[in-house]
Structure formats: C-alpha cells, structure tokens
C-alpha cells in the first residue's frame, strides 16, 4: 500500500511537471516540497496514523484560554 501510494504520487507529479509550459526552478522546488508533504500525509493515512487537524489562530486562542484559567 505504501509503495502504491508513493508510485501514484510520483506519476502524478512527473506527468504534471512535464505538462508545464515553463519549468521555473523556484516553482519546481516549491511544488516538489509540497508534493512530498502531501505524500507523507497520504502515507500516514494509509498506515492508519491519525493526526489532529489544527488551526493556527485556534491553537493560540486555546493556549491563551489555558493561561487565563491557570492551574496545571
């Protein structure tokens, strides 16, 4: 399963980049990094790992709430 997911991502990534009219280095680097991140998420999902989806401001708010409430 892990290999299959990786293979699908590689095929999608390579085909899409080949279809680009211009292959700018910066764009390519960002694209590769994001595809790798997405692949890691997909692999984690495929292996049954559950990661909570956070929201940046939401985390700050809950931290402030905890600080105001105090205690351990």
């Amino acid at each position: 399963m892990v290999i299959l997911i990786a293979l699908v991502y590689v095929i999608v990534g390579v085909v899409e980049v080949l279809l680009w009219e211009k292959r700018d280095g910066n764009k390519l680097a960002v694209y590769v990094v994001l595809m790798i991140m997405s692949l890691v998420f997909a692999e984690l999902m495929g292996t049954g790992v559950h990661i909570p989806v956070i929201s940046p401001i939401g985390e700050v708010i809950s931290l402030v709430k905890k600080l105001i409430q105090g205690g351990s």
Binding site: Y9, V12, G13, E16, W20, K27, V30, Y31, L34, M35, M37, S38, F41, A42, L44, M45, H50, I51, P52, V53
Partner: peptide, 20 residues
C-alpha cells in the same frame, strides 16, 4: 500564478478529510 499549487493542496485533502 497559483495553479501549480493546486495539485499538492488537492491531494492533501484526502488525508485531511480523514483526520478532521
């Protein structure tokens, strides 16, 4: 241009939708 970012973001919806 934003279009080249659509594919990785769209693919990440699959695990995200499982975890949300």
């Amino acid at each position: 241009d934003y279009r080249f970012l659509v594919t990785p973001l769209a693919l990440s919806i699959m695990p995200g939708a499982q975890w949300i």
